[in-house]
């Protein structure tokens, strides 16, 4: 159920399947980064201060163990990837395993989310949500015209305001509402 395009071995296999020759696998980067993380853990664990004259296992031991495990796992995985083993990309009802990666959508969502995070304390959570919601939904619709963004924005604003009222007014979660909404709901 989980098989997808990454599952096809690129270098070593002579399987009669459609493949993109010489295709570089991002998983190699992932494996190398994991090994690098392990090295960082091993090196930096030495800098953890060990209080007193404890002769038993201190705060460095577990980081060393995790670091060692990470280096070993990362290296082995990198070898496997180099030998042509590819992890099957995750499957899902809304995922099209044959679709090319839409990097623009990923980028837009990432940027929209950071902008959202920075805007919360400025314009309040509901409006910040509406803007992010509009950006994400419009991108996923595949049409980036101002006219196509109107409805997502209104939907996002509604969702943001309703959620804010429920969580702030009924459940007392701390969440900035923005000047307008806080004034309008001050009687609640």
């Amino acid at each position: 159920m989980n098989e997808a395009e990454e599952s096809v071995a690129a270098e070593t296999s002579a399987t009669p399947v459609a493949q993109r020759p010489g295709r570089f696998s991002g998983e190699l980067v992932g494996a190398v980064l994991l090994a690098a993380l392990g090295v960082y853990l091993l090196v930096d664990a030495g800098a953890i201060a060990v209080p007193g004259s404890s002769n038993t296992v201190g705060p460095r031991f577990f980081p060393y163990a995790v670091g060692g495990l990470s280096v070993a796992t990362g290296a082995l995985l990198a070898l496997r990837v180099l030998r042509g083993d590819r992890g099957p990309a995750d499957d899902g009802e809304d995922v099209d395993p044959d679709a090319p990666t839409d990097w623009r959508a990923v980028a837009v969502i990432a940027v929209a989310f950071v902008a959202h995070a920075l805007l919360i304390n400025v314009v309040g959570w509901p409006l910040a949500v509406a803007l992010m919601f509009a950006a994400v939904a419009t991108t996923l619709q595949g049409r980036l015209t101002p006219a196509a963004a109107v409805r997502p924005f209104l939907v996002g604003l509604t969702v943001g305001c309703v959620v804010w009222i429920v969580f702030v007014k009924a459940l007392n979660v701390a969440l900035p509402g923005g000047v307008v909404l806080e004034f309008l709901t001050s009687w609640l």
Binding site: V95, D102, A105, V106, A110
Partner: peptide
């Protein structure tokens, strides 16, 4: 993010 990258 993953679904967005390969939306069905």
């Amino acid at each position: 993010l993953y679904v967005a990258s390969r939306l069905r």
